[in-house]
Write a protein that binds this DNA or RNA. Structure first.
Lengths: 201, 201
DNA sequence: GTCTATAGTGCGATAGAC
DNA sequence: GTCTATCGCACTATAGAC
């Protein structure tokens, strides 16, 4: 009788590919390495993903989903305080950037490796960043910022800077100034007339 | 007697390689493409650069030199006003990021393509960023910032963010908020007691 | 397994300055 | 004609996509 496909094959490939792509970059990794490390056969990989590009796209979609799970959990801890929620997102990026095997934001990295706008890697990166921008905008509006779009964008720049700077100069590089910078920006945009908009230190 | 070596060969290779590497990334470009586009022979390329890695290093060194030429020219236009000089550097990165064929900061891009700390691409990227950080620190000190290192780092993050964000979302993305953000940060750090530290709009 | 691409080597042919 | 810079091509070895 025919053997049934083992469940979780796709996830296994995705997990292995994710580790290798993050650590070394996509172009530096051959599918052979992915196959070797999964212990699966070549045919199985090509059954799940019709090409390397598609695997890259699927990897970034999974990364995006994992990110939002973390973010929304974090936001729930500061419900009703959108200014604090924006800061929490910055804190989350810092925590990620400080993790032991950090090698840069997978979305920025992958976009930089694939310049063609139609490449799944770039498409997913762009989509992720647009979702981030939109989420920050809604928080900035909720926080009563005078120029919510501008505040959201300022935080996007800050977080992008945290990622790229940390990936080259490490967590003691410029990223060390990120929290203070975020507070300055949020407070400057959200100063209530009463002056009670100070974020916790 | 003998045929003279053609002058400018090295520069020609460097110019062509620079264009291709910037546009497509280093790993996406084969030396054959560089050779084809220069119209030179393979042997000549290998006489000037003993390996692709070395070519990458030389390219980034040249890019670093070109950057500082631009920066110091810009700084001279605001001599004696270090706060304005910091803003001028941010303006310069914005101008570069807005140029028609911008594909991200070559230093961040190359560092993301080569994770090995010993790779010439990564070494030069790191060196470039450290020089930038130091230059900004000296300006922040000269401007009398209360926490000059922190201000310098905040601007580093901002500029890094401008580059990566523009390379994916274009100049109408978050980078549009960069100038306002820079002003907020510089003013917050350099407020003179007399309150006369406002930057020109 | 197949086919393509790539880094890097080496050499004969040729072009051009004297 | 002589001499050398440089081209163009052939070649190896390795790796990658599929």
């Amino acid at each position: 009788m025919a053997r049934r496909p083992a469940p979780g094959t796709r996830d296994r490939i995705l997990r292995v590919a994710s580790g290798l792509f993050q650590r070394h970059g996509v172009r530096a990794i051959g599918l052979q390495q992915v196959i070797d490390e999964t212990g699966l056969g070549k045919s199985l990989l090509y059954r799940e993903f019709s090409s390397k590009d598609e695997l890259v796209g699927a990897w970034l979609r999974a990364s995006d989903a994992a990110w939002w799970t973390k973010v929304e959990a974090e936001l729930r801890r500061h419900d009703g305080d959108p200014a604090r929620q924006m800061l929490a997102i910055v804190e989350l990026t810092l925590e990620i950037a400080r993790s032991p095997d950090f090698h840069g934001c997978v979305f920025y990295n992958t976009a930089s490796e694939f310049r063609d706008a139609e490449h799944p890697g770039r498409r997913e990166a762009r989509a992720h960043l647009e979702r981030m921008r939109e989420r920050l905008r809604s928080l900035a509006r909720a926080a009563g910022a005078e120029a919510p779009e501008e505040l959201a964008d300022a935080l996007m720049l800050l977080m992008g800077g945290v990622y790229v700077s940390t990936s080259v100069l490490g967590p003691t590089g410029p990223a060390a100034a990120a929290l203070a910078s975020a507070r300055t920006l949020i407070e400057a945009h959200c100063q209530a007339p009463a002056g009670d908009s100070r974020l916790p230190r």
